[in-house]
Amino acid sequence: MFEDLANKTALISGGARGQGASHARELAALGVNVVITDIRDELGAAVAEEIVSAGQKATYLHLDVRSSADWASAVEAAEKQYGSVDILVNNAGVVQCAPVDLLSDEDWDEVIGINLAGVFRGMRAVIPAMRRAGGGAIVNISSVFGVKGTWGYAGYVASKAGVAGITKSAALTYAADNIRVNAIAPSSVDTPMLDEEKVIMAENPYFDFDEWMASQPIPRIAQPQEVTDLLVYLVSDRSRYCTGGIYPIDGGILAG
């Protein structure tokens, strides 16, 4: 179905669990050489081993998305092993539930450094490799909260809105290089990060998760595979006329 993806190489940040691991497994099953990166080395290596055991191609590399050196090393390793980098999935992220007046400098720097600056550093590292490959597809993971905002998530909303903005700018800038850049904006997804978020939500008096779910036209949590299905479309030739888009997968919340 997605024959054009066979033998391409995808670099995925935050690939050790949750959405990132789902993306890695599906792309590998479609014949993509998958380079999984994360700071959770044991989990990431296990995902890569699982993929290889299934007869597919995967490599795990340690990568802190805040480190330009780590990004440069990952791109170099991917090109050396597989010959190119054709796909970038900027998936790594952290969530914080804090309003402006309760957000520390350290927490602000962390969420911006990972969620937004990490996306910038990833694209900056990969774009020259994609030029060498004759083009590529980049998918950045934003959030529905980066499109509409929400109560008490100041740093997180700012970071994800920034991801949407840099996606649009890069799409315009690199279309002539045959590099397409899009973003996915999910609502809540059933991942370990959501489990962690629910714990810290208790400290956010502005946001009630149950009310948030009930407000969605499709009032349930998304499954990682549902995000992956959209991602596969966006990195394949089926979306070859799509660039600069921010694609919600949100149970219809943005329609209201």
Rank of each mutant, 00 (worst) to 15 (best):
A98W: 04
T37V: 00
K148W: 07
N182L: 01
N178Q: 11
A202F: 04
A176F: 06
I36W: 06
Q225E: 13
L172T: 07
L5Y: 08
L30S: 09
K198H: 13
R124M: 06
L61M: 14
S159F: 09
A78P: 04
G155Y: 11
S84D: 04
G245N: 08
G155K: 12
I166A: 01
W71L: 10
A77G: 03
S236G: 11
A176T: 10
A133F: 05
V189Q: 13
G252T: 02
Y206K: 14
S236P: 02
D41Y: 07
L43Y: 06
Q81M: 10
N90M: 08
P99I: 08
D38K: 12
L230A: 15
D109G: 07
N90G: 11
V144C: 12
D105Q: 12
G44K: 00
P224N: 05
F145W: 14
T243D: 09
T228D: 07
E50G: 08
A98E: 09
Q223C: 07
I114C: 06
Y60Q: 11
A161N: 06
G244M: 04
C242S: 15
A21K: 14
L102M: 04
A21D: 10
E3D: 15
K160R: 13
V94Y: 01
I218Y: 10
Y153A: 09
G244V: 08
A183W: 07
T173M: 15
